[in-house]
Lab assay of single mutants.
Amino acid sequence: MAAGGDHGSPDSYRSPLASRYASPEMCFVFSDRYKFRTWRQLWLWLAEAEQTLGLPITDEQIQEMKSNLENIDFKMAAEEEKRLRHDVMAHVHTFGHCCPKAAGIIHLGATSCYVGDNTDLIILRNALDLLLPKLARVISRLADFAKERASLPTLGFTHFQPAQLTTVGKRCCLWIQDLCMDLQNLKRVRDDLRFRGVKGTTGTQASFLQLFEGDDHKVEQLDKMVTEKAGFKRAFIITGQTYTRKVDIEVLSVLASLGASVHKICTDIRLLANLKEMEEPFEKQQIGSSAMPYKRNPMRSERCCSLARHLMTLVMDPLQTASVQWFERTLDDSANRRICLAEAFLTADTILNTLQNISEGLVVYPKVIERRIRQELPFMATENIIMAMVKAGGSRQDCHEKIRVLSQQAASVVKQEGGDNDLIERIQVDAYFSPIHSQLDHLLDPSSFTGRASQQVQRFLEEEVYPLLKPYESVMKVKAELCL
């Protein structure tokens, strides 16, 4: 049975990233139509530049190519590739079939990587351009969430054990800070992308030097003109047959890092959902379990974690691919890159769409948070109580021993009897502590235990987050809708 299948058929496997999760716009960027249309555009740009620099290419040939950029006979191309065992030459023939007058000058002087690699770089750039505003929107939604809850005390956790208090907004800023680093890295790697350009079979530009009869300047002009037509500021000066596969490492490393950030955020949300302090959106008709109707599973956060793990592992592909590119190139890269580049971007696209949807509907339960604080705060307040007693004339050592005994009794009630923490009640009825009984409410005010959390939130948002989001103001209103 021949390899390949009808990918629109229910009898043929289709990647869930495309069929179930990723956005239509990201799927289109990695589609065959987008790819092969870009090949034709690159052939047109090459012909236009070659004509401008004096090669015998007519206006009629150029116009014929322009008129057929979208006229792609995919069936013919597939048949040609089956016959020739070469995808680029299959599309040269297919393009030439609908451009008979231009057929002889299509791909003039070029090698397969002229269309293959340059198209990949265009796709990487455009895919990054799709991700950047999506990530900015996630940051914006979380920034709104953090600002609104900047002063809401909550129990902090280290080692997932109760620690000092923080605020809900401050905790959210930990998430935002990681995503801001990801946004900066995505922008950097996007701006650092260079075009492969017009380089020939081993990167020496020998074929173009021959076409222009040894004119170095025209060869350099050709490279520059096509690079500018493709919208790049610069091209690699040095290439082998391909652009260095280190570029793929750079791009997928940034995406993998984004995956790590999203995994951490969504894990926190899942843990908070278990504590009943916070939940992701839950639709009115949504079913959490087929057997347990009360369940409210954090399905979206779980999906993000599941896909983020996949995204983090994909960076190993370009690392290994770059390491086995012998001399000017081997074909070890080809099949692998067809999979890992598309999957990385479709996965990143999915987790950003999902995280935006989550961040637009996060639900906080202040009463649950308050109750958990009441359970733990008495123990945390013991040092403040000791200091207040010393100020009232008591002995630190005597007070410490009193607190120690009462704390152990209260802990026994919590752990052995399943009761509430009654340390404060014990202190309130103990005559030894009568000098500070009137101060206990103040000493137990949760806001006095959150330090500068709310001020940190305000400063972080104003100095770091809002300036970073400013270039994306025009796209901030787009909502994230999930079908599944």
Rank of each mutant, 00 (worst) to 15 (best):
A3F: 09
G394R: 11
A410D: 04
D317A: 08
I57K: 00
A344N: 00
R338A: 03
R337L: 02
M89D: 00
I358N: 11
F379L: 05
R33W: 08
R337N: 00
P446R: 03
T52P: 08
V390L: 04
T58E: 14
F433P: 03
R372V: 03
C180G: 11
E376W: 05
A392D: 08
E279W: 01
P162R: 03
S31R: 06
R171P: 04
L131P: 03
Q177D: 09
L484C: 11
G8E: 15
L17R: 01
R188S: 09
V247E: 08
W43F: 09
D6M: 14
L341C: 15
T119F: 07
F157Q: 06
T242R: 00
G4V: 15
A78S: 13
V465F: 04
T382L: 04
Q241Y: 00
E25G: 12
A47W: 03
D215W: 07
P24R: 14
Q428W: 12
N297M: 04
K147Y: 12
N297Y: 04
L341Q: 14
N297V: 01
Q320N: 13
K391H: 13
Q320F: 10
E401Q: 13
L482I: 15
K224A: 14
H437S: 10
W39P: 00
R452I: 10
Q458D: 14
M76E: 14
M292R: 01
A47N: 04
D73V: 08
R141E: 15
R296G: 02
M89R: 00
G451E: 04
Q285K: 13
S289A: 02
E417L: 10
F28Y: 11
T347A: 15
I373K: 01
C399G: 08
S12V: 11
G451W: 04
R303C: 04
K402S: 05
L272H: 05
L124Y: 09
A392S: 10
L152R: 04
D216S: 09
D332I: 00
V368Y: 05
A260E: 05
V198S: 08
A308R: 01
V368L: 03
T382E: 03
S395Q: 13
C304D: 04
A335K: 00
M76H: 10
H263V: 06
L132F: 11
I62C: 09
S323G: 08
G214M: 06
C266I: 02
T267L: 08
V363D: 06
A480I: 15
G240H: 14
L444N: 01
S474D: 15
V413F: 13
N185A: 12
H263Y: 05
V405F: 14
P435C: 07
F208R: 02
I106Q: 04
I339G: 04
L174T: 09
P56L: 10
L346V: 13
M387G: 14
P293I: 03
I249L: 10
V363W: 05
E48M: 07
F232V: 03
A150T: 11
L311F: 02
Q63W: 09
S257P: 05
L314R: 09
K402C: 02
D248P: 03
L314D: 04
D216Y: 07
V226S: 02
S359P: 10
N336D: 07
F449T: 02
V368R: 11
G418F: 02
L443K: 02
S301L: 15
R20G: 00
L152S: 08
I72W: 12
T321G: 07
F433A: 05
K284E: 08
M26W: 00
T52R: 11
D129K: 15
V478D: 15
G8C: 15
L377I: 12
T111Q: 01
L55R: 10
L258M: 12
R452A: 13
M387S: 14
K199Q: 05
T450A: 07
L484A: 15
F30V: 11
K477M: 15
Q286G: 02
K75N: 10
Y34W: 09
V390W: 04
E328N: 01
G451A: 06
A49D: 01
Q241F: 00
R194W: 07
E277I: 03
Q161T: 02
L443C: 06
I72H: 07
F460V: 06
H217F: 15
Q397K: 06
I237S: 07
N384E: 04
W326R: 03
A273W: 03
E481S: 15
L444V: 07
R270Y: 03
S253A: 12
A2P: 09
H7Q: 14
G156E: 02
K199W: 00
T267N: 09
E302L: 00
I385G: 03
S301G: 12
Q177F: 13
K101I: 12
H400M: 05
C266R: 02
A322R: 03
V219R: 04
L124C: 12
Q408W: 07
P318N: 01
W39F: 12
I237E: 08
T38I: 13
D182F: 00
D332R: 02
R404W: 12
W326E: 03
F327T: 11
I176R: 00
Y365Q: 12
A256Q: 03
R196Y: 08
S434F: 11
C180K: 05
E213T: 15
L461Y: 06
Q286E: 03
M278R: 01
E80D: 13
S395T: 06
I106G: 01
S151D: 09
L69A: 08
